[in-house]
Simulated scan of single mutants.
Amino acid sequence: MAKLLLNLRNVPDDEAEEIRAWLRREQLAFYETMPSSWGISHGGIWLEDDAQLPRARALMADYQAGRAATARAAAQQARRDGKAESFASQLRARPLYVVGVLVAIVVIVVVTLALPWWLLR
């Protein structure tokens, strides 16, 4: 029976392609399901033989640890270079959007705190 190895929700294309490549390289039989038309399912990568699942999960853990280390290193480098995205950089780039989001947050907090008090009065 097939087992889901990776749900493709929010998985970048390059990561999915790297996973497909190492599955082929390790000769693990797999197939993919495509996302649904209405966005209910985002597709997935499935192992055909569930006896290979422990090996595939170990390989996946190693892959994800390496990818996380690479992403952390890139983020640290961006901070050192001053290219990391911050609140101030977002405010300079898109001031109306940032102010709009802040106003929406304040409105939601006020409604959340005041509505129960107003309804119980």
Rank of each mutant, 00 (worst) to 15 (best):
R57G: 00
S86F: 06
K83H: 13
D49C: 06
I40H: 08
A75Q: 10
S37F: 11
Q52S: 12
D13W: 04
H42D: 15
E17Y: 04
E85F: 07
A71F: 10
I45F: 13
A61P: 01
E32I: 06
R57N: 00
A75R: 14
A65C: 05
T70L: 14
D81T: 02
A73Q: 12
D14E: 09
A73F: 08
A68G: 01
P35Y: 12
F30M: 07
R72T: 09
R79H: 07
S37Y: 11
S37G: 09
W22Y: 14
A56P: 00
E18V: 05
A74R: 09
Y63L: 06
L91E: 10
G82D: 04
L53V: 00
S36K: 07
D62Y: 05
A69M: 08
E17Q: 14
Q27Y: 04
D50I: 01
A75Y: 08
Q27G: 02
D13C: 02
E17N: 13
S86Y: 05
A56G: 00
W38Q: 13
T70F: 12
I40N: 08
A51C: 04
A78C: 01
F30V: 07
E85S: 10
R79W: 04
E26K: 06
S89P: 06
P35K: 05
L28I: 15
E48T: 13
T70P: 00
Q90H: 13
I40T: 09
T70A: 14
P54M: 01
D14P: 00
A84P: 04
R67G: 03
E32H: 06
R25A: 12
I19Y: 11
A65N: 11
D81E: 15
I40Q: 10
R72H: 12
E15T: 09
S37P: 03
A29S: 12
A56F: 00
S41F: 14
A88F: 15
R25M: 05
S86N: 03
I40E: 13
I45L: 15
W22F: 15
A29K: 12
A51G: 06
Y63G: 05
E18M: 10
A51T: 09
A58M: 03
A16E: 06
H42E: 13
A88N: 09
D13T: 09
D14S: 07
E85R: 13
S41W: 13
K83I: 03
E18H: 10
S89N: 10
R57C: 00
M34Y: 08
M34L: 14
A51R: 11
I45Y: 09
L28R: 03
A88E: 15
